[in-house]
Amino acid sequence: MFVKTITLTLCLASFLFGAGGSFMSKNSPLFSDASAKEAIGELIVSAEVKELSKSGEYTEVEFIGYQPKDSAVVYEKAGVLIVGLEVANAGALKVIGEKTDEYGTVWLNVSMKGFVASSALGKDKGSILKAGKELFGAKCGTCHALHAESEFDANVWPSILDAMGEQAALSKDEKYSIMKYLQNYK
């Protein structure tokens, strides 16, 4: 009976483990397998993933999000431009559902599995976003006054950062880190 309890506890633990709640601590390539030879996409900082298994220094994860038809970009939620995953091949996403918003736009609920470096995963979304906050202050308040986080909403920050990113020569990593902080700000 003692053994059964332990087994049950372990199963419970791995169920909780598999229930998600892991976050990308930085932009990372998503590989088709643990040999990390073929990148099938890139997971974006602060995106939530479900850890499925481990293989050496890589973790198999699943990302679930929303994709406008044919888009190579998958968003964390339907209707808001919060990027979770960029894929090399839009057709490689597994469609698990569909949702039509009040404007008639069809969002495909999609899933993608793959391997990421385990070092790119974290459990505390808050501290991941905090790095973006630092970068926001460092990069975005030097040429002009630092804007309030609430000045634009989550849907608008991407286009602001596109324009300003050119001015400030933000790298992709920097831009996403700042963007995710601003988009998640409450």
Partner: peptide
């Protein structure tokens, strides 16, 4: 890649 926002 796709329409993601990244540096050119």
């Amino acid at each position: 890649m796709g329409n993601g926002s990244q540096g050119t």
